[in-house]
């Protein structure tokens, strides 16, 4: 749609700018709060950055908030990263393989298998959290990276997405690969996975953010500080008991916790935008 009406242009821009402001304002406030002293922040958040940025971030990254029961943020960021990557990679590998099986192999109860996976879409983690906790506890996986990530790996959404994608891959491609002597796993590795590149990149971003932002599950399965993730760490800091929460430091942590997902989006963006633009068939 190409129109050249100045009034419409202005209206469009006003709406867009308003929208951006609404979304950016909380982040701006968080950033501003992270650059002041605790006293300034508690007496109402100022709107302009202060001069405590260096000190606040140095404290958060360095000594941590041992006074209020949170480990150094470096460790929490590292834990979050391990958990998010394990969930992302695990989900992608499992769902790639399971949708490959469902689409390309004729085995008994294939349709049943697919629908079973599909039905679990209806049950988010929160609904099945108690039985899942019980299982993880029985297996002795509390307070471990395995306990943090494995229960969140099975993914109906990604399986469904890859199934839909595989079904659009022309049959002739499969047959050409058979004539070329590629066995099933070779076909999967050499042809299906490279063709799924765009989907892989998009899913990686979505799943990484999903994994990074997990809150309830880490809260349940970790009691050992050395396995705390940053998102739950922020919550621990905010509920610091009798003491007044140190909002400037909490906000600094929040800003730091936001950076890895942003980095993933920026890193992956080129790959999946390019993939979306180039239609290859």
């Amino acid at each position: 749609m190409i129109e050249n009406r100045p009034v419409l242009n202005i209206v469009q821009h006003v709406i867009l700018i308003l929208g951006v402001t609404v979304f950016v304002f909380p982040i701006w406030l968080a950033f501003v709060a992270s650059t002041h002293t605790a006293r300034d922040v508690n007496s109402g958040i100022p709107l302009l950055p202060g001069d405590q940025m260096w000190e606040n971030y140095a404290q958060v990254l360095g000594e941590g908030l041992s006074t209020i029961g949170a480990p150094p943020i470096g460790l929490m960021l590292f834990n979050s990263l391990i958990m998010a990557l394990a969930i992302t990679i695990g989900k992608i590998v499992i769902s790639l393989l399971s949708s490959f099986a469902i689409v390309y192999f004729r085995f008994p109860f294939r349709v049943l298998a697919f629908w079973t996976i599909f039905v679990t879409l209806m049950l988010p983690v929160e609904v099945r959290i108690l039985p899942t906790y019980e299982v993880v506890a029985q297996l002795g996986m509390l307070n471990s990276y395995a306990g943090l990530s494995i229960p969140l790996i099975a993914s109906a959404t990604a399986t469904f997405l890859f199934r839909q994608f595989f079904m659009t891959v022309p049959d002739e491609l499969t047959e050409a690969a058979r004539v070329d002597g590629a066995g099933p796993m070779k076909f999967f590795r050499d042809i299906l996975v490279p063709l799924s590149r765009t989907n892989l990149a998009a899913l990686f971003v979505i799943l990484f953010i999903y994994g990074w932002n997990q809150y309830l599950w880490p809260l349940l399965v970790t009691t050992d500080e050395s396995y705390y993730t940053v998102v739950m760490g922020i919550q621990r800091m905010a509920n610091a008991g009798e003491e007044q929460p140190l909002w400037n430091l909490i906000m600094a942590t929040a800003i730091l916790a936001m950076l890895p997902p942003v980095a993933v989006i920026i890193g992956m963006q080129r790959l999946f935008v390019r993939g979306l633009v180039e239609t290859e068939k």
């Binding site: 022309p170 002739e172 491609l173 047959e175 050409a176 004539v179 068939k281």
Partner: peptide, 13 residues
């Protein structure tokens, strides 16, 4: 044998 398909079935990547 080798086969030539109607839509060529070239590996796009």
């Amino acid at each position: 044998i080798s086969m030539v398909f109607q839509n060529y079935a070239l590996y796009p990547h």
